[in-house]
Simulated scan of single mutants.
Amino acid sequence: METLTIVLTGGRSTRMGGRHKPALLVGGSSIVDRAVAAAPGRVVIAGSGEGLTLPGVDVVREDPPFAGPVAGVAAALSCVAPGARTVLLLGGDMPFLDADFLAQLTAETPAIARDDAGRDQYLCAAWPEETLRRRLAEIGDPAN
């Protein structure tokens, strides 16, 4: 099944003193470039494209800016025609994702990664696109 990857980079990075986390370098590459390189299918960045150097990636901004991850998902989905795809949602602050892990995550949807403490990580998850579009329609305004 086709995959659409949405990387959410719209935060203010206040805990980093305003330094845009996805633009930070890890192993010589920005965190956002590392996520894009590991991601399957078409990639859409929702938020800031700061730090992105790889070609072929769409960058959209949530409306209003800094309106949260749900608004970022809505903005990203609005720039692609609906389809029967898996949507991979990724936070823009995960430098150690790799293609093998993301392939496992998208093998069966829905799928939500868990951290070492067993907590669900909703910004590292795979969903049927239809489910996300339906839920966005149900909630209305996705801001905040």
Rank of each mutant, 00 (worst) to 15 (best):
L54Q: 12
P69M: 10
G51A: 02
L77A: 04
A46H: 08
G49L: 02
R61T: 14
E50T: 01
V59W: 07
F96R: 13
G51Q: 00
P69H: 14
F96P: 08
S78W: 04
T106F: 04
R85E: 02
S48R: 12
P82H: 02
G91L: 00
L105D: 07
G92K: 10
V80D: 11
P69N: 15
R42Q: 15
F66Y: 15
L90M: 04
P82W: 05
V44M: 03
F66G: 07
V73F: 06
D58W: 03
T86I: 04
F66Q: 13
V70D: 12
T106W: 00
T106I: 02
E50R: 06
V80P: 10
F101S: 12
G51C: 00
G83L: 05
L52K: 00
A75I: 10
S78H: 14
T53V: 08
A84L: 06
G68C: 14
F66S: 13
F101H: 15
V87N: 02
V57Y: 11
L102Q: 12
A76S: 11
L88T: 01
G47E: 09
P82K: 06
L90S: 05
G56R: 08
D63I: 09
V60I: 00
E62K: 02
V80N: 11
T86S: 03
G91W: 06
G92V: 07
A99C: 10
V80S: 10
A99T: 14
V57D: 04
R61N: 08
A84Y: 00
A46L: 09
A74N: 06
L97T: 14
G56H: 02
V87M: 03
T106M: 01
A46P: 13
G49K: 02
D93A: 12
L89G: 03
P69T: 14
A81P: 13
G49T: 00
I45Y: 08
G92R: 02
T53F: 03
L90Q: 01
I45W: 06
C79N: 01
L54T: 11
G47I: 08
A67E: 12
A75Y: 12
G47V: 07
T106R: 09
D100P: 13
F66W: 13
G51D: 04
F96G: 07
D98R: 10
F66H: 15
L105P: 01
G68K: 09
I45F: 09
L97K: 09
V60D: 03
V60C: 02
